[in-house]
Design a protein around this nucleic acid. Structure first.
Lengths: 174, 174
DNA sequence: TATTGTTATACTCTATAACTATA
DNA sequence: TATAGTTATAGAGTATAACAATA
């Protein structure tokens, strides 16, 4: 058991925790009501960023069950944003690819949300904007840690153990 | 139309927007799967903070429809976390109160999440923690602005027009 | 007639359990 | 036997539309 200074920032933890819940509401309201779900967007973004993935990998990466991801991908496929392809090397696996429409949808969505965020940021003071910008690396690190500890039971080593250049399941091809 | 420097921080907006989506995942995974929904927690917290509210007020405050809030409150009432009371002054309105069990649940949940957040914060560098702490006021201001612009069509005046000491619907009593 | 709240209906999203098919 | 994925079922949570009751 490593010695980590847990008691160093209990007050900060309480405040950060509260801020997170408030931000969740913002995330929800930043997009139109009938927008894609967070998990769907995350999966799509992952497919865009690091290429085709197996269903199991997507489920694990986004922190949902395999059946949930199956249905999610089915809906995305119905919408034409992804396609399923058989893996020639293993008849059981399904490889999910993002489509051109998927990329477009993602880009549009990002632009829309960034526009709204820009409006909000514009109403902040320069100091506040500066503080937010300065905190972004810490926020990313925090989010990475959270994701990491969720996936492989709180490995504490190299933070940001980044997504392999070749997505999992890609290596054994011929 | 006021002149607001929208184009000053487009890059920042893109990054903040992306960070928000990543944080949404963290929020989701910070609690047990069978945890209360964000909206339920927010409504409960509001009842705790500013006393009994009408259903309509809760729905507006949390950004959901009235029927959605009716069902949410029904579930919370089934769980014993809130109670409904008739308003003697107006037979149509329902006043929702938080119960002792509701307060306990809220406190437990907060403590749990704060503990997990503290663990994550403990793995950050001191500089990163400091940056996060310094950004908290800006984050709050940002969240307030978002909530505000959602509710009364982007009034740009006094930010943080805060929740009235007496909750809405409380004034016209006799 | 307007407002408050509920009920009806439908859809997304999730989880667990049971199943199929490949390995 | 184990793994990849699907299907079945149930439930939370949301929205819109139609409704009841009160003002």
């Amino acid at each position: 058991m490593e010695i980590v200074d847990h008691d160093e920032s209990p007050a900060l933890a309480v405040e950060v925790s509260a801020a997170l819940e408030r931000l969740a509401r913002v995330v929800r309201q930043l997009g139109p009501p009938s927008d894609m779900s967070i998990v769907a967007v995350a999966a799509l973004a992952r497919l865009e960023r690091t290429g085709p993935h197996r269903l199991t990998d997507l489920a694990a990466s986004e922190g949902v069950t395999q059946p949930a991801m199956t249905q999610m991908i089915s809906r995305l496929a119905d919408a034409g944003l992804v396609t399923r392809a058989a893996d020639p090397a293993d008849g059981r696996v399904v490889r999910v690819h993002i489509t051109a429409a998927g990329r477009t949808t993602l880009a549009d969505r990002r632009a829309n949300r960034a526009r709204r965020v820009a409006d909000l940021l514009g109403a902040l003071s320069p100091d506040e904007r500066a503080a937010l910008g300065a905190a972004l690396p810490a926020i990313d690190a925090f989010a990475d840690l959270a994701t990491e500890s969720e996936q492989h039971g709180r490995s504490r080593g190299s933070r940001r153990p980044p997504l392999p250049a070749t997505p999992p399941g890609e290596t054994a091809h011929h």
